[in-house]
């Protein structure tokens, strides 16, 4: 019997692990195979980019994370599964946290561990081709990997959580389109109110579309140049809002 929240949460995570470990570890292993194949070609040309591993880590983690995000609430696809989840005797917060653990905790941790375990295999694969020794992973690269492992789920992934509770199917696509809409609206608002832009439109393209494009990219540039503000904005506002609204939507979810 699970009399307290911790034991119930642990048990819920155990049940979820039983359902999702194959997709989690499987998708990570598949991407390891992709890296091994991908390293062959540049190794043959004796030129591997210094950021090869970091780039593949970002892509791989994003894919594994997206897979787990896609499978966040597979129960919504069938009424019986929805009923089973909603009426399971556990607190909504416990069920919600048990679900969130997979994309936001297990996906980055498991993928990073598997990546680091496979690193010697990548090096061996590169070595096997023309005896080429690629760059090893330096401490800086490992730090970059760990940053990516935090940034992808927290700064991008949270935007997709409310959508996973609203939409029954293809919620990632709907959430992406919604984010794109916000992005366009931000650009249009900046253009309409002549807000300061960090990138001017091309002098040769003075059309409204050219100006809109410049304003849109100014949003991106804003985040690049003012990274600390963007981090603060995300940590103090966007992340809590997205996670709390996701919880509220889960609590109020009907079949």
């Amino acid at each position: 019997m699970y009399s307290n929240s911790f034991s119930r949460l642990a048990y819920l995570i155990k049940i979820e692990w039983g359902k999702k470990w194959k997709s989690l570890i499987g998708s990570a292993l598949i991407y390891m195979m992709v890296i091994i194949v991908a390293i062959m070609n540049p190794a043959q040309k004796l030129s591997i980019a210094i950021d090869f591993f970091v780039i593949h880590f970002v892509i791989g983690l994003t894919l594994v994370f997206a897979t787990q995000l896609f499978l966040l609430f597979p129960e919504w696809s069938a009424p019986f599964k929805t009923i089973q989840l909603l009426q399971l005797p556990a607190k909504p917060v416990e069920k919600y946290l048990a679900k969130l653990c997979f994309p936001f905790l297990f996906a980055p941790v498991v993928f990073t561990l598997i990546f680091l375990v496979f690193r010697p295999v990548f090096l061996q694969a590169a070595l096997a081709v023309k005896g080429f020794m690629t760059y090893p992973l330096y401490q800086e690269d490992i730090n970059a990997l760990l940053q990516v492992a935090l940034i992808v789920p927290l700064f991008v992934g949270v935007l997709f959580v409310p959508g996973a509770l609203i939409f029954k199917k293809v919620h990632l696509l709907f959430s992406f389109l919604f984010c794109l809409l916000l992005f366009v609206l931000a650009g249009l608002t900046a253009q309409a109110f002549q807000l300061p832009a960090y990138l001017t439109a091309s002098p040769s393209d003075q059309s409204i579309f050219g100006a809109m494009e410049a304003q849109l990219f100014s949003v991106v540039y804003f985040f690049q140049f003012k990274r600390i503000y963007a981090t603060l904005l995300w940590c103090s506002g966007i992340i809590p809002i997205m996670l709390c609204s996701g919880y509220f939507l889960f609590k109020q979810r009907e079949i």
Binding site: G18, A78, P79, F80, K81, I83, L86, Q87, L88, P89, A90, K91, P92, K251
Partner: peptide, 26 residues
Amino acid sequence: KRQLSWQQQVLFVPETIEMPPRSLQR
């Protein structure tokens, strides 16, 4: 409100059942 103690005492069985691909014991 879906309170925990309440959910332990109320169970709904729908008309359409779709059991999971797991063994009975599990």
